[in-house]
């Protein structure tokens, strides 16, 4: 079992090495003639005003909250799904209640207008 994770480890070294090496070779081969115009922010013809790092109304933060709830739900359901064949009828009832509660939560968020993109 552990040797399988050894492969993951070795592959991660290879993958990381490959992606860094590509950028390194490009950095070595490419010309280096920086000038202020070239390095200015690419937004439009006019000079950029201000930074992009301002306080910003993120439209998706409610989506992010709903996402967290549902992602945790699916993570809980994975072990249930693997063991499902060996469990009795009780597992079905329990998971059904669990899923239905979350379904009710989704309907509630829907009715409250949390799922509208403005």
């Amino acid at each position: 079992m552990l040797s399988k994770y050894a492969f993951i480890g070795i592959l991660s070294v290879i993958a990381f090495g490959f992606s860094v090496l590509g950028l390194l070779v490009a950095w070595l081969l490419g010309p280096k003639k920086p000038n202020p115009i070239k390095q200015s922010t690419y937004e439009c013809g006019v000079e950029t005003i201000g930074e992009a790092w301002v306080q910003f109304r993120a439209q998706y933060y409610i989506f992010a909250l709903v996402f967290v709830v549902f992602d945790i739900e699916t993570v809980f359901l994975y072990p249930w799904a693997v063991a499902y064949g060996r469990l009795g009828l009780f597992a079905l009832v329990e998971a059904a209640i669990f899923v239905l509660i979350l379904f009710a939560g989704l309907l509630y968020a829907w009715r409250k207008g949390a799922l509208e993109w403005q």
Partner: peptide
């Protein structure tokens, strides 16, 4: 071609 392009990091 992309490998031989200049590596530009914007100022900000």
């Amino acid at each position: 071609k992309l490998l031989t392009k200049e590596d530009i990091i914007p100022e900000g």
